[in-house]
């Protein structure tokens, strides 16, 4: 048996060199930091826990941007965090860099384009026709997107089309469904303005008269005209009107 002892020793030496020598010499020292699994996980967990932030949170934004926050927290976008649209805020906090705001229709349509997979009661529009191709922010203030719009129908219309069979302007006030608080003036298509949430978002007031070929709206509706447009419409031109407001002709 003795003739094998020397060979055995040599083999152990080679093994020792491979497993200890080779590892210590050519493998950089940062690799030597690991003990047997899982001794060192806490160091790594702490390293993960201390990674820098990119996104802050809405309460961080509101501590400075009080005006917009006040609008936002009462509006329909109150569930949408600031950084959803404005992007991560930590760089802005640290360096003051202004985040670049995407104001395109594309950004709004990521949420509001009509898709079969979206919940039916989520407000969606047909982006091909809704508001022409005007930027959404022409009409909607993104912080309070439905401000100035007629109120929504609070219930599901199902297949009913004749709103005035219940909401009759001539009925006394104590009838259960609320009466229409404004004059009807022959309008029958209530849903053109009062879209039920989700089925129709196009709820801008229609032009209450026929156009009969007129194209220069501002002739009557300019500020100081016969019936001036609302103050927040300042700066819009004749070209814009018909993208939102449909006439009585259709």
């Amino acid at each position: 048996m003795n003739h094998l002892v020397r060979a055995g020793l040599l083999l152990s030496g080679v093994l020792f060199f491979v497993f200890v020598g080779v590892r210590v010499i050519p493998i950089p020292s940062f690799m030597a930091d690991f003990g047997f699994h899982p001794r060192k996980t806490e160091t790594n967990t702490l390293a993960w826990a201390n990674l820098p932030l990119q996104y802050a949170q809405t309460s961080t934004c509101s501590s400075c941007h009080k005006d917009n926050h006040a609008l936002w927290e009462k509006g329909d976008h109150k569930t949408v965090s600031c950084e959803n649209c404005h992007g991560p805020a930590v760089a802005h906090l640290e360096t003051g860099a202004r985040p670049v705001m995407d104001t395109s229709r594309k950004l709004c349509s990521t949420c509001h384009a009509q898709l079969a997979a979206r919940p039916y009661d989520f407000p969606q529009v047909d982006t091909a026709t809704h508001g022409g191709q005007a930027a959404c922010i022409t009409c909607h203030n993104p912080h309070t997107p439905r401000a100035g719009m007629p109120p929504r129908v609070p219930h599901d219309c199902e297949d009913r089309t004749n709103c005035q069979s219940c909401h009759n302007p001539h009925e006394p006030l104590d009838v259960v469904p609320p009466i229409i608080p404004h004059t009807v003036e022959g309008r029958t298509d209530c849903l053109s303005c009062h879209g039920p949430q989700g089925t129709r978002g196009n709820a801008l007031p229609r032009i209450p008269h026929t156009l009969e070929g007129r194209t220069n709206c501002l002739l009557c509706h300019n500020s100081g005209g016969l019936k001036p447009f609302p103050a927040d419409h300042a700066g819009r031109t004749n070209a814009n009107c018909l993208t939102c407001h449909r006439s009585k002709e259709g």
């Binding site: 967990t45 993960w48 826990a49 201390n50 990674l51 820098p52 932030l53 990119q54 996104y55 949170q57 809405t58 976008h77 569930t79 949408v80 965090s81 950084e83 959803n84 949420c111 989520f122």
Partner: peptide, 19 residues
């Protein structure tokens, strides 16, 4: 992990507009 350890929500939860 770095957010939840500091009392913040994960970034995807923070930005989800519909909960």
């Amino acid at each position: 992990y770095h957010r939840i350890q500091k009392g913040l929500l994960p970034a995807c939860v923070e930005v989800c507009p519909v909960g």
